[in-house]
């Protein structure tokens, strides 16, 4: 740690943690983040201005290229000295490269799934199974007017490993969104205890 703290101020030291919210296009990521966040959505256009410059071509005529990638941002003050942040990126596959920076150091992730378009979340599941070390769970967003899902069928359709927790949620409900976050932390905790027994 850095040594520039003022030890005389006990309230100063604050731990921040992060959970990432992933999933395909339109599965309810933004809805879930905003259901629990204590702050209004942030304009995140500035975050990746350099990165997006690298992947986008100038429009014909030499005009200014302006890519806005609206990412999700949420904050929850758990204790005066303990903050939990939520980060999500849009579901389109062309934004996957953003995940590496945003998800580094996260305590875990949730992949949201819409059972109507289950294939939309294949890429996210693949990413967390193969290209990431983060613990993750999968949450089926219960869009209204739909029958309850058979989670065993969803697991099969996603070819989801037995040890990845699979739950249902309603992204519009604060209580349900909190349950999802608890599910992520509980899963991370169980893995942390396995890797560091005692």
């Amino acid at each position: 740690m850095d040594s520039s703290s003022s030890p005389s101020d006990p309230g100063l030291l604050t731990i921040s943690a992060k959970i990432v919210v992933a999933g395909g296009f339109g599965v309810g990521k933004t809805t879930l983040v905003n259901s629990v966040s204590e702050v209004r959505p942030l304009n995140t256009d500035a975050w990746m201005t350099e990165a997006s410059e690298g992947v986008d071509d100038l429009p014909p005529g030499g005009g200014k290229s302006k890519t806005t990638v609206a990412m999700d941002f949420g904050r929850i003050t758990l204790q005066p000295d303990l903050l939990l942040y939520l980060f999500g990126t849009p579901g389109q596959a062309r934004f996957w490269f953003l995940w590496d920076d945003l998800s580094r150091g996260a305590l875990g992730a949730v992949v949201l799934v819409d059972t109507n378009r289950i294939d939309q979340s294949f890429a996210a599941v693949n990413y967390f199974e193969n290209d990431s070390v983060l613990p993750f769970i999968v949450a089926v967003n219960r869009f209204e007017g739909k029958p309850e899902h058979d989670l065993a069928e969803v697991r099969e359709a996603l070819a989801l490993n037995e040890d990845v927790p699979l739950i249902e949620c309603d992204a519009r409900s604060r209580a349900s969104a909190i349950d999802v976050l608890q599910g992520v932390v509980t899963h991370s905790l169980s893995l942390a205890k396995v890797s560091a027994p005692g």
């Binding site: 740690m1 604050t14 731990i15 992060k18 305590l107 932390v185 991370s188 905790l189 942390a192």
Partner: peptide
């Protein structure tokens, strides 16, 4: 001039920190 606070990751997401987060939730 500025102080950089520790992240849960700096604590390697250790169980005590995770427990506190879970309790908070």
């Amino acid at each position: 001039a500025v102080f950089i606070h520790p992240t849960a990751y700096a604590y390697q997401n250790n169980p005590q920190v995770l427990e506190r987060i879970l309790d908070g939730l």
